[in-house]
């Protein structure tokens, strides 16, 4: 917590890397007079302001909504994605979660499929390509259908909604010892596989999204559960089991061919 002045002084070890081609290294910065009520990103803003005043290159990091719903922030703080607290994103992390005088190590998500753009910002377009490979449903054009036209049991609706809360931040990949994207991919597949609207493409979807996931160079799941523990939206490992089941059903028991295009990043 804070010192006698009600503020905190911290040492930051931040990963600096000009681009994906150049090797990066840690730089040390002082973060002084930090309010414990600041969010982690606001603290970085303060540090960046002082860096800019010395005419140096500020620390690059991803952020957007700063209220935990967009999935842009992506910092690996003291060995954990989104920092030490459970079920929040980095922007929802406050400095009161740290102690005065502490050294904080900040790293980017590390995965072959997430190349560093600059410093702490990584390229997560691999997720977009997985999504584009099949994470959609077909809807006829025309008038807007009535709400609740298709009856969906409450349990199913809740389960699908839980899967749908995935914000694509990539903390699952960052946390996994294999840099596997299976929690993300399975959440996107399960969300649609559970609902009636997702049925027409259900078995084609699972095949093409898994194919795209493999093509992006993510690792495989070992059912360890680090992803589930670190997911800011608490997506469960059960999604991966759902995906496995649909994948094997599609591949081994169904007559549905998939011509997955758009392979490779």
């Amino acid at each position: 917590m804070s010192n006698a002045n009600g503020t905190m002084n911290l040492t930051l070890k931040v990963w600096r890397q000009p681009n994906a081609q150049t090797a990066g290294k840690f730089e040390t910065y002082k973060a002084e007079n930090i309010s414990p009520d600041m969010s982690f990103l606001e603290m970085l803003d303060v540090v960046n302001e002082s860096i800019i005043h010395t005419k140096q290159d500020p620390i690059h990091f991803d952020h957007d909504c700063r209220e935990g719903i967009c999935g842009m922030c992506s910092l690996y703080i003291n060995g954990r994605p989104h920092g030490p607290k459970r079920a929040i994103t980095t922007c929802q992390l406050h400095m009161r979660s740290f102690t005065d005088g502490e050294t904080i190590t900040i790293e980017p998500w590390r995965a072959k499929a997430f190349p560093v753009i600059k410093d702490l910002a990584v390229d997560r377009s691999a997720f977009d390509r997985i999504q584009q490979a099949g994470g959609y449903i077909s809807v006829n054009t025309g008038g807007v259908p009535d709400a609740n036209e298709i009856p969906i049991p409450k349990v199913i609706a809740d389960e699908a909604f839980n899967s749908a809360t995935c914000i694509q931040c990539g903390a699952c990949v960052a946390a996994c010892k294999n840099a596997s994207a299976m929690l993300f991919t399975s959440a996107k597949i399960t969300q649609l596989a559970l609902l009636p609207q997702g049925q027409p493409e259900r078995y084609r979807r699972v095949q093409s999204m898994v194919a795209q996931m493999d093509a992006e160079g993510f690792g495989s799941c070992t059912n360890t559960g680090a992803c589930e523990a670190e997911c800011p939206k608490e997506i469960t490992l059960t999604n991966i089991a759902h995906m496995n089941f649909d994948f094997f059903s599609a591949k081994l028991f169904r007559e549905e061919e998939v011509h997955a295009e758009n392979h490779g990043g």
């Binding site: 954990r80 590390r110 995965a111 840099a179 596997s180 160079g217 495989s220 059912n223």
Partner: peptide, 26 residues
């Protein structure tokens, strides 16, 4: 599988915290 998984993270993290997952699975 292990080789592929290793290749999926070419640069390792500098800090590892003790994650709440079992020794066996890791």
């Amino acid at each position: 599988l292990t080789t592929n998984n290793r290749h999926a993270r070419p640069v390792d993290y500098a800090v590892h915290t003790k994650s709440p997952v079992s020794f066996s699975s890791k």
